[in-house]
């Protein structure tokens, strides 16, 4: 076991660790982090730099007042907000709290850190779901084309190529117009417009395997087609597919960001890293932290998946 592990290149090990951290963040983070969509005080939605502190007074009527500074006075709390000093009487105030925004806030006063933590879950879930869908679709098409051969093969593969020729974002745009946008629909749309690579890979695998002795032997002894396909061809074709999947996960996460850039990403108020980056670029001049943090997380994750995929490839090569 140890010997096998040692064959992982260092980069891939680090990448795997990073991905594990990201996955951990996506799973555990939202449990400990406050909800990301809260706009505590809609009348004070300033863009705050990382590290800024804000005070909040929880009022009796259930609303919250944000303040830049806060000090207790005889009758209640003296607060300063947007340059004005006012006193909120003790009878109105149910409680006070202070909060530091370690990574700043966005244009609506929402905590960037909280949105990044919750966004990890959305980005990863969306990417994984799209990955599953595209892999399933691509595997089906690839298996059918590779196994059947002939006219079906030609048509299926040409179809896959031709779908590639239609600009994918245009396709997705029309699909989101047709279906009402939600996270699920988005995953389906992204997944169902990126199966072509898998199909091609799968077909190549099946074609090679079809000619291998063990498959020919199985056919000779009269094993059923489905059995050969499912029990023997598919598992053998899985390895390169797994490596490809690791690479594609990154791509799929990026596609969501591109869609957000064109306005067709995850519907608000849900945050994903991609949509945060796309929104942030529009306001780059006013807050660097809106671009830098989601950008780094996004790039880091995609980079890690690519490195992991490469590590996988290298490991497989040594294995052979």
């Amino acid at each position: 076991m140890k010997r096998v592990c040692a064959r992982w290149p260092a980069l891939a090990r680090h990448a795997g660790l990073a991905l594990g951290l990201v996955a951990g963040l996506a799973i555990v983070g939202p449990l400990v982090c406050p909800a990301p969509d809260t706009i505590r005080d809609p009348s004070s939605t300033a863009l705050l730099a990382p590290g800024s502190q804000r005070f909040f007074l929880l009022l009796a009527d259930g609303s919250t007042v944000a303040a830049e500074t806060m000090a207790p006075v005889a009758t209640g709390w003296e607060i300063r907000r947007q340059g004005e000093v006012q006193v909120v009487s003790d009878t109105d105030v149910q409680g006070v709290e202070s909060r530091r925004f370690w990574l700043g806030t966005d244009a609506l006063g929402r905590d960037v850190l909280a949105r990044l933590v919750w966004g990890a879950r959305v980005s990863l879930a969306l990417g994984l779901l799209a990955l599953v869908i595209s892999t399933l679709l691509g595997t089906l098409v690839g298996l059918a084309a590779g196994w059947a051969g002939g006219a079906l093969d030609t048509i299926l593969m040409r179809l896959a190529d031709a779908v590639l020729a239609v600009p994918m974002l245009v396709l997705v745009l029309l699909l989101t117009a047709l279906l009402r946008p939600s996270l699920g629909v988005l995953a389906v749309v992204i997944g169902s417009s990126s199966w072509m690579g898998v199909a091609r890979l799968m077909r190549a695998q099946v074609q090679t395997l079809k000619q291998r002795d063990f498959v020919l032997g199985l056919r000779a002894i009269g094993a059923s087609r489905t059995r050969i396909l499912l029990r023997h061809v598919l598992p053998n074709a899985m390895t390169p597919l797994g490596q490809d999947a690791a690479l594609r996960l990154g791509d799929l996460i990026l596609i969501e960001s591109s869609l957000s850039f064109l306005g067709f990403g995850v519907p608000p108020p849900t945050a994903s890293w991609g949509s945060m980056l796309a929104d942030g670029q529009a306001t780059l001049g006013s807050g660097w932290w809106l671009v830098v943090f989601p950008g780094c997380l996004l790039a880091g994750t995609v980079l890690a998946t690519a490195l992991l995929a490469e590590g996988l490839q290298e490991k497989l090569r040594h294995f052979r």
Binding site: P42, G62, S63, P181, F264, P268
Partner: peptide, 19 residues
């Protein structure tokens, strides 16, 4: 997003739908 947050405070669930 702001309208959604305000309506949520009075108990009305609004979901923003970019279309």
């Amino acid at each position: 997003v702001l309208v959604q947050a305000d309506l949520a405070r009075v108990g009305v669930a609004a979901s923003p739908r970019p279309t």
